[in-house]
Amino acid sequence: MVTATALEAELLELAGSVPDPELPVLTLHDLGVVRALRLHGSDAAEVDLTPTYTGCPAIEAMALDIERVLREHGLREVSVRTVLTPAWSTDDITPEGRRKLREFGIAPPRTREASGPIPLTLGPTRTGAAGAADTAEAEPVHCPHCGSADTELLSRFSSTACKALRRCLSCREPFDHFKEL
């Protein structure tokens, strides 16, 4: 176990301050995707970055932005490694990140312990036979606009793979919900 130096910690913070390319209200630190930074010599750094989803197309933009910021800070060589282990989870989003998401109009993911998706209901089928299998949600998704817990799922995949599309039944506004992963 190598302990990070004060300079490494400072540079890690700098890398974490880069805004997420798809959700610019969040920094990469808020999102919890910058894992580590190691200095090699005085002016070369290696950064560990983890993708939210395996196919997340934003990761290349994130890597470029991190490289740019660190180079502007005087580093000569920056390499960004993609690491998969341990797998990223929405629990890695910081409390600050959750607050920013809500203010931005996106319902933050619920924190969770068990793995696997939280069951959602698609709506009743004709005979209602399927209804029994649709487990009630443990914790309701609150509308980021009015705070109501009375919201319904419109589509489990929305503008990006990490979000679901929901609608508030109180204020009738549709909104994105950052899905639990």
């Binding site: 341990p86 797998a87 990223w88 489990r156």
Partner: peptide, 14 residues
């Protein structure tokens, strides 16, 4: 990879 992908695929299956 499997540890990461299994969480994504859970949504596909659902």
């Amino acid at each position: 990879l499997a540890a990461k992908a299994v969480k994504e695929v859970a949504y596909h299956r659902d």
